[in-house]
Simulated scan of single mutants.
Amino acid sequence: FFFGENMVRKCPKNWKGIVIDAKGHLMGRLASVIAKELSRGQKIALVRCEDINISQSFMRNKFRLKNWMHKRHLTQPNKGPFHYREPRKMFWRVVRGMLPYKTAKGMAALNRMKVFEGVPPPFDKMKRAVCPPALRILRLAPGRKFCRLGDLATDIGWKHEKTVKVLEKKRKDKAVKHFKRKSQLKKIHKAATKIVDKIIPAIKYGDPNIKVGSL
């Protein structure tokens, strides 16, 4: 069962599942929690897969990954194993290994997950959650080495890290502008509410001490 593009590229506008921000999570722990939730029928979209962490140093994980990249079917490589280089596909493969994906039930569970690099629309305007049992800062002992999945993917041939960084910078700048505008509107609304609270008693009860024209 190979990686289908329809599992990644389709971004439903009316997403009714959970959106998880994968930044700062340990890959194995996060995959196990997600696999369990998928098997229970939950829909999950995972964003910022390039910022997933893996325990142990970069060089150790690099050598392990390079060793695995050489493994193939001797007589017919088209049969696999397929070596994915995108962070989202690498994480998708880890989750797949935790599900009975060769059965109809396991395939249906796997299809309930969407994985992305960066935060594409419409998920940029949705509330994103974290998974405390898989957070590196809570689960990995202080001083232990770790590395980013995006760095490993770049080392073995992923070519889109710069593009993702540019798009993420644009998204964050846009979010900052939106937050400033929202804060200004809140201040205006608060000031207007105070004025209205003064005007209503004057109109309703005819208070002579409050002049509507002076407000």
Rank of each mutant, 00 (worst) to 15 (best):
H70K: 13
L149C: 05
R29H: 02
H70N: 11
A35E: 07
E117F: 04
V8D: 07
H160I: 06
S39N: 14
P132V: 12
A109G: 04
P81M: 08
D51S: 13
A129G: 00
L38S: 04
G41A: 05
L135Y: 07
C131H: 13
L110M: 14
E50F: 00
G213D: 08
S32E: 04
I54A: 12
P201Q: 12
R128D: 02
R93A: 06
V19Q: 01
L152S: 06
P77Q: 10
P87C: 13
V19E: 02
V95P: 10
R48P: 01
F82T: 05
F3I: 08
V176W: 15
G143R: 13
L30C: 02
R40N: 12
Q42R: 14
P120N: 11
K43T: 06
E161W: 04
K187D: 15
M126Q: 13
A35G: 07
F116N: 03
E161I: 13
R48N: 04
L135H: 13
I210W: 10
K23F: 08
R88C: 04
E5K: 03
D207L: 03
L185Q: 15
A35W: 12
L65S: 02
G106T: 13
K190I: 15
K10R: 12
N14K: 14
T163F: 04
F82E: 00
A141P: 11
G24M: 09
T193E: 02
K169Q: 08
H73L: 08
V164K: 14
K159P: 10
G41P: 02
W158L: 05
R148W: 03
M90F: 01
A45Q: 00
K79G: 11
K174S: 09
N78K: 00
F123P: 00
K79H: 15
D21N: 15
D21Y: 04
W92Y: 12
M90G: 05
S183C: 00
K13S: 05
V130A: 01
L46W: 12
I34V: 14
F82W: 02
K10P: 09
S183G: 02
R128L: 00
H83W: 06
A35P: 00
K186Y: 02
R40K: 06
L38T: 01
T103S: 14
H70A: 15
D207P: 01
I18N: 01
G28V: 10
V95N: 11
A35R: 11
V212S: 05
A191M: 08
A191Q: 14
Y101W: 07
T75L: 07
I203M: 12
L152T: 02
V94C: 03
K182T: 10
L140V: 11
G213C: 14
A129E: 10
V212M: 04
T154D: 00
K23S: 06
D151C: 05
S32K: 09
C49Y: 01
C49V: 15
P120F: 09
L215I: 14
E37Y: 07
V176C: 00
M90E: 08
N14S: 06
P133W: 08
P100K: 12
K13M: 01
I54K: 15
L167T: 11
A202V: 12
G41Y: 01
